[in-house]
Amino acid sequence: MWPFSKKKTAAAVPPKAPTSHNPDAELAEMYAEAKNAVAWFNDYLGDDNIMGEIRDEKELAAPKSAFVNAFLIVLAMEESAEMRDALLETALLLSHFQPGIGGHPLRMLPVQSPEGVDPARLADLIHSHRGEHERFQAMMPTVFAEMKSMADQYQKSIDIAVSKWG
């Protein structure tokens, strides 16, 4: 089952076959599921700025493609231009989740914030961080290419919303 579903089905009770096909109800359910996925991603990020990091996509609660699809749906249905802008900014952060990174995010700098680190110690940290920094640099073209591809997809959803809501 989709990990963001609010519905829980009992294991012993098989789901009932639908008595009639209701496309409006199915669309409403799909939209609700997409909104739940977007909300999960927003909650996951919280105040954690992942700019300057590349994380493993296994940290996500569902496949990255499911999140991309959720953002596509929510962007297409959003009335507010300001909210679409915020959603787009968040949605593009999915490009910072890549396969094979491992449990520790790749960072541009060896610390999340250099504030409070003795400048002499920071130079030593940066030097010792060289291999991870090179791996980060090698992954960035992939992140940027995926971000551009996502932006192109998301723009189609935004165009749908603009044509519907203005």
Rank of each mutant, 00 (worst) to 15 (best):
D48R: 11
R130H: 12
E29Y: 01
E115G: 15
A145P: 03
E57P: 09
D43A: 11
V13C: 03
Y44S: 08
F97R: 07
T9C: 03
K35W: 08
P119D: 02
M108P: 10
V117T: 01
F71I: 05
K8C: 05
L60H: 05
F4H: 12
H129E: 07
L88R: 14
L27F: 04
V74R: 04
M51E: 14
Q98H: 05
T142S: 14
A32G: 12
S80R: 03
P119V: 04
F136I: 07
R107S: 12
V38K: 04
E115C: 04
M83I: 14
G116S: 04
K156W: 10
S128M: 11
S80G: 01
A12L: 14
E115V: 10
Y154V: 05
A86T: 06
L72N: 15
I54L: 03
L92K: 10
Y31S: 14
M77Y: 08
F144T: 13
L94A: 06
G100M: 06
I101Q: 15
L75K: 05
N42C: 07
T19I: 13
P3V: 12
E26S: 00
H21T: 00
E115Q: 14
V38Q: 06
P63S: 07
I101M: 14
L125A: 14
E146F: 06
L88M: 13
D124W: 07
A28S: 11
L60G: 03
H129A: 11
A66D: 08
D85C: 02
M1E: 09
D124Q: 13
S113M: 12
Y154Q: 11
A62H: 04
P14L: 03
I54G: 02
A37N: 11
R130N: 12
R130Y: 15
M30Y: 00
A66I: 02
A17W: 02
A70M: 11
M147K: 15
